[in-house]
Simulated scan of single mutants.
Amino acid sequence: MKILVTGASGNVGRYVTGELIKMGEHVVAAGTNPQRLKDIFKDKVDAVYFDFTDKNSYKKALENVDRVFLMRPPHLGKPEDLYPFIDAMKSHNIRLVSFLSLMGVEKNTIPPHHKIEKYIEELGIPYAHVRPGFFMQNISGVHSVEIREKNQIFIPAGNSKTSFIDAEDIGFSVAVLLHSPEKYKNSAHTITGPEALDYYQIAEILSRVTGRKITYAKPGYLKYRRYYIKHRGLEKAYVNVTVALYFMTRMGTAKDVTNDYFKLTGKTPHSFEEFAIKNKDCFM
C-alpha cells in the first residue's frame, strides 16, 4: 500500500516525502501542481493533482493509500475546509493519519488545528498527531524579508520564548510515525528544538551568522497585522491565524522543550544556530 503526502512541495512535506522514500515506502506526492512535484522528486513518487477545495481530486489521491500525512494549507483558515477530505479518509479505511498540528493546541481552541484534531478523533480514524513548536523556516521564509531589507525581526511575540524546530526534524518524525502505523496508533507527539529562545536571542544569533546587526522590532499585534496585509500583501485569513499563534506564544504556550523527538528518532534536533548557518543565504 501507499502513503499519501499532502503539501508534498512544502517546508515539511518535502522532508516527509524524502524520509519515507529512504525507508522504502511507496509515496503519493499530492499538490495542485503535479509537474512541480515530478521536478522535485523525479520518478521516486507518484505525483497526483490534489486540492482540498476540489472533491473530485480525492479519489485519485487516495487510490491504494492506507496512510496519510495531512497538513492544513496556510490559506485555508477554517477547520471546516478540511472536513470533506477527512470524511473521505474515513470512507477509505485509512490505517493512520499523521496530522501536522501545533504545540499546545490540545489546550487552546483558537487555532483551527484544535478542531481538526478533534474531528479526526471523533470519526475514529487512527491518528498520530504531530504538535511541533514554531518552524525555524518561518524565520528563514516569510519573516526573512524584513531581516534582509531592514535588518529587523518583525514579529509580535513580545518577550516570549519559543522552542523552535527545524522542518527537517518534523519531517523525519512524521515519517517514523507513518512507517510504523500500528506502533503509533492513536498517539500525539509534541516535538521541539533543543532550547527555548526569545527573539532578542534569535537576533543575536542572526547577527553573528550574517555579520550584520539584526534587531528585534517587537511590534504590537495591530501594527504587525496592518503591515503584513497592506505592505506585504498577504491574505487576511493567513495573517489572522499568525496573530492568534503569536498571541498563544505570549501566553507561554511555545516555550516548553520536550524530548519527544529523541524518543521517536533516537536523534537530537537541530539548534537554531545550526539552522541559521546552514540557511545563511536566506538572511543575506
Rank of each mutant, 00 (worst) to 15 (best):
H113N: 04
H189V: 00
T162L: 04
P79T: 14
I170C: 05
I205C: 11
V97S: 10
G124Y: 13
V142E: 07
K185C: 10
Q137H: 10
D81Q: 12
E168F: 14
V176K: 10
Q201V: 04
K115N: 12
E204S: 15
P111V: 00
K107Q: 08
L82D: 11
T162D: 06
A175T: 04
P156M: 08
Y200K: 15
F172H: 15
P181F: 10
E195S: 13
R148Y: 06
F172S: 07
G193F: 08
E80P: 08
D81A: 15
E121N: 06
I205G: 09
P84H: 05
N151P: 04
V97Y: 09
Q152M: 15
H189N: 01
I170W: 04
P111L: 00
I165E: 01
I94S: 05
H179C: 01
E106A: 07
F85V: 12
P112M: 07
A88Y: 11
G104K: 03
K118L: 13
A203T: 10
P84E: 03
T190S: 11
P112W: 10
L82Y: 14
A203V: 11
D166G: 06
G158D: 02
Y199G: 08
Y127A: 11
G141F: 01
I170A: 04
E121I: 15
E182A: 06
I120S: 13
R95V: 12
D166V: 10
G133C: 00
P132S: 02
M89W: 08
I153G: 06
I147N: 04
S160C: 03
A157D: 04
H129V: 08
D87I: 08
I125C: 11
Y83C: 07
A188T: 05
H113W: 03
E122V: 13
Y199I: 09
G124E: 14
L177A: 14
P79M: 13
G104L: 03
A203K: 14
L177N: 14
I120W: 10
H113G: 00
L177E: 14
S101L: 01
V176S: 03
Y127N: 08
P84W: 04
Y119A: 03
D198K: 03
K90F: 14
G124Q: 12
I116M: 12
I139F: 03
I205K: 07
Q152G: 05
L123V: 08
A175C: 07
A157P: 02
A203E: 12
V145D: 10
N151L: 08
M136Q: 13
E117L: 05
A128H: 06
A128L: 08
